[in-house]
Computed example of a mutant assay.
Amino acid sequence: MTEHATTSDKRLSRATAIAWLWRRLSRWPLPRLWRFASTLGPLVYCFSRRERNVTDINLKVVYPALDQRKRRALAKQSLRHSTATMMELGYAWMAEPDRVEASIVEVHGRDKLDSARAQGRGVIVLAPHFGNWEVLNFWLSSHFPFTAMYEPPKITNLEPIIRHGRERMGAQLVPTNPRGVAALLKALKRSEAIGILPDQEPDWGSGVFAPFYSRDAYTATLLPKLVARTQARVVTGVALRLPGRGFAIHFLDADERVYSADETESASGVNASVEASIALEPAQYQWEYKRYRKVIEEQQQNPNANDFRLY
């Protein structure tokens, strides 16, 4: 057996095990999933050094006035919610649609989407990594023609399962390339809704540095291009977890700067919009993501640039 075949077999076995776990957990009621996450969360904080360290650093940057004891408590709560999100993936992708729909017990701000579409305008939903964004995708694609960009998982054998889960209520997934951008533009011109992840670091050359909690973070500039060509409205959308009960969907007006033709100004509005959603409940944001990652290319091109390395 070749080394390549051995690696492929290991990936297939891993994918099979993960898919089995998702199916198993999809049958669990939400209160049980939350209890399970509440048990695992403290273990993640204790034994997952990378997630703990990145979360602690991010919280120290964005909440400098918070004392160490309160920051540590917030970090533990955050990792509990992130664990819950992972436990709920099978639920969002594989549970009976009626069950998932019934678990969405509140929807706030739907009128912002309905009003824009009634005016013949598309809607760009900024969907940060907050609460359970897969439940948000479920609701959006259940109620509106909805298109979102999609990047295949590193474990390629899981792609059909993840793709089916995200598309099962009618969502259209498009690649993260010019063809995908063209599909987003067409959807907006049809007065449909599209989803954008506003808090992932883009490829070099596809973003600008803009403040996120008063410290510069590399931020994508796709949004002003889409707005300029379609006159779409922009809202922030999240699925807030109500532990043991379900979820509350919130749509918030985006910061007005997102409509600026200036890319840095627009990116600043995007980050401010993410901050506003985090304010709903800071513990539900995925703080273990390296939002302030050092961009080596920036330092190579500009030796006097600020040092963004925190991690």
Rank of each mutant, 00 (worst) to 15 (best):
V100L: 08
H4N: 14
E192C: 07
N304K: 11
N302I: 09
E192I: 06
R241F: 08
A193W: 02
G170T: 09
F251A: 04
N177M: 03
K294W: 10
V135M: 07
L12D: 15
L226P: 00
K294R: 15
S78M: 00
Y289S: 00
P282L: 08
F138T: 12
I104N: 05
L21S: 13
T264K: 11
R257T: 14
V100Q: 01
G131W: 03
A118H: 11
V54D: 01
R190K: 15
Y292P: 03
Q299H: 15
W139H: 06
N304M: 09
G269P: 02
F130M: 05
R14L: 14
S115W: 00
L126W: 01
R163S: 10
N177P: 01
I161V: 15
P152G: 09
L197H: 05
E275G: 11
P29C: 08
A102W: 07
V44I: 12
I194Q: 03
I278V: 15
K10T: 15
I124C: 06
S115T: 15
A5V: 14
A37Q: 00
V105M: 02
E281L: 10
L30A: 04
F138D: 08
T147D: 05
A279W: 02
S82T: 12
T221S: 09
T7V: 13
E106W: 09
V274M: 06
Q300I: 14
R293S: 14
L242R: 05
E201N: 14
E101D: 13
T264P: 00
D111W: 10
E281T: 14
Q286C: 10
K290P: 09
Y213I: 06
L173A: 04
S191I: 06
V274E: 10
E281K: 11
K186D: 08
L126T: 03
A305V: 13
R117H: 02
D114G: 05
N132Q: 04
E134I: 07
G269V: 08
I104Y: 04
D199C: 07
A171L: 04
R233L: 03
L184N: 07
V274R: 01
